[in-house]
Amino acid sequence: MTLVSAMKARDNPFAIHRLQQTPYHLADTTWCDLLDKLESFNNRAAVIGQHGSGKTTLLNKLYSRFKAMGRCPVTAFANEDTPLTWRQLKQTLTANPDRQILLLDGACHLGRLTWYRLKRYTHKRQIGLIITTHNPGLLPTAYHCRTDITLLQNILKELLPPHEIPNETSLEKLYQQHNQNIREVLRTLYDQWAYQKK
C-alpha cells in the first residue's frame, strides 16, 4: 500500500473558505447595473440558474455590497435536506430589527405556504427579498447565472498560481464531465489537489 502525504484540508486551494473569498465574475453586466436593476425591483427579485452556476456565491457578494452600503441585509439558507420553516425565517427577520433586505438562498426549497407567508410578511413591512432559485417565476428575475469555460478559468486564476492551472483541454473535459456544473468541477479539483505533496 503506497502511503501518500495528503495536503492539509485548510491549505487546499479549493477549500470552501478559499472559494468564498474569490471575487464574483458578472457576465454582461456590472455591479452598478445589477444593483440598479435590483433597486428598480424594490430589491424584491430573483437570481436564477442551474446547479453549481454560482447563485449562492453571487448572493454572498450581494450581502457584502449591501452591508457596505449600510442596507443591513440578513440571510437565510434552505436546501433539500434543510428546508426552512416559517418560524425560522420569522426568527431571522425579527432577530434583526434593522434589517432591510432578506437574502434567501434556495427559495425553491421552501414549502409553498412558507413562501407565501414570507412574501406577504416582507411585502407588508417593505423588506427587500432577494432569492436564488433554479427556475423563474417566484419573483422577477434580476440576474441569470450562467457558466462557461472562461468563467471557470477566471475562478482558477484567483485560486491557483498560473503554472498550476490545468490546461484548457483538461479543464474543458472536466467541465463537460460535470455537466457544466462549476461547483462540482471545483470539488473534483479539491480531491486532485488533496493528494499533491505539500
Binding site: A9, I16, H51, G52, K55, T56, N79, E80, D81, T82, G106, C108, H109, H134, R183, R187
Partner: peptide, 10 residues
C-alpha cells in the same frame, strides 16, 4: 465532510 451549499448536501 458534508457540504450544503446550493440546493443539495453532499
Amino acid at each position: 465532510a458534508t457540504y450544503d451549499q446550493g440546493s443539495s448536501s453532499k
